[in-house]
Design a protein around this nucleic acid. Structure first.
Lengths: 205, 205
DNA sequence: CATTGTAGTGAACAAAAGGTCACTTGTCAA
DNA sequence: TTGACAAGTGACCTTTTGTTCACTACAATG
């Protein structure tokens, strides 16, 4: 019950910050949500700002581990259909995983105030996905699944619309199902435009 | 100097809210930024929340007038080159117009807290642009400039990446120039993919 | 000129905020 | 058993916050 409290505080902070933002969050309420009293928080974090920084440390580390490392790169799919299903798996995870949703919301709310949040927001919302899919598309071009083109441009053109709909889900959760359908439709439209239509009998070498 | 103050307060509020958010903004500082003392604000708005709501009213009205009305629809360009330059004109406006930038920031910061902000955010960031460009693409298909396809899907695929880069500029203004270049590159890539390459001698009827 | 209403001031207030500290409690090691 | 330490409490403090109000200055109107 001891060491655990520090972790519970961090998770409660993620929760409140993601709803009310840093300024809108107050320590009393945060402590109460854990059955603590506010001075109890200060046994684990020396100030509200220290708590915020610890949370950011965590988010940055988590991002690095989860999205930044080579082992978590999605495998290059070997059919366009598998490419779509891979996308949908990733999308479903990122939309429904509570911690990831809250992380996105916090970054959205604090991106103009905190420099590290700002940087992480750009990774989360833009460059991270683009880099990842640049590799995927490069691989798919090598396999002859999609036509040769600038893979970074394709990755940007592919991930940004999906990212926009993920933000929509964060903002209006009741539109989640529709958004997921739109993402799938967009995905299929995308492979239809960029997919290499192999002539009959032709095969990838 | 009389009626004017109410307006100046509204603009100062837009400014502070866009930087510090609603919770982070305090009336004293806001008044001071206008050379007033805090009680002066209350002569024009009965509470902080009333001020916030007045600002939202304004933003909603402005959006309706600026982006919602038929007369402000961009004309359907009659060449792909003009399509790109039209896009760039719009992008430059939306990135450099202070009031529009601040509006986007406020909506970003308050989208999870205020229902009207939430709705306006979706319009600003997603559906508004998509609707507008659906019409543009429909017109361009009619003119034979781009190949026939689902115009709404094209509009979504076109505007979402641009929107993502506009958000990037709001977050990291020092990347504005690079972002604008990327938008233009994306734009050209887009028309290359979807543009109808008319055979020699062929013309739109 | 008298009056009336509007814009603005400054002092005051209650509530809420972040933070401190002396104290209790429970656990574990010597 | 005892000493030490980490975890948690409750009372207290200071600062900040939104809001009110009696008052002044002044322009417009009759």
């Amino acid at each position: 019950m001891a060491k655990d409290t520090k972790e519970r505080i961090l998770m409660a902070a993620l929760d409140m910050f993601s709803i009310k933002g840093y300024e809108g969050t107050n320590i009393r309420e945060l402590a109460a949500s854990l059955g603590l009293v506010k001075s109890g928080i200060y046994k684990h974090y020396e100030s509200k700002e220290a708590l915020w920084n610890a949370l950011l440390d965590r988010m940055i580390a988590y991002y690095g581990k989860r999205f930044g490392s080579a082992e978590h790169l999605p495998p290059v799919p070997d059919s366009l259909e598998k490419f779509v299903s891979m996308t949908m798996r990733m999308v479903n995870l990122t939309i429904h995983d509570d911690q990831i949703v809250k992380t996105r919301k916090v970054l959205t709310l604090e991106q103009y105030r905190d420099e590290r949040a700002r940087d992480l927001a750009t990774k989360h919302f833009l460059t991270g996905l683009t880099k990842m899919f640049t590799l995927v598309f490069t691989g798919m071009m090598d396999k002859g699944l999609i036509r040769r083109d600038d893979p970074a441009m394709l990755a940007f053109a592919y991930t940004a619309p999906i990212s926009a709909l993920i933000h929509l889900c964060d903002r209006e959760p009741e539109k989640t199902e529709e958004a997921i359908r739109t993402i799938e439709a967009f995905s299929r439209h995308f492979i239809q435009v960029y997919g290499e239509t192999l002539s009959f009998g032709e095969s990838k070498h």
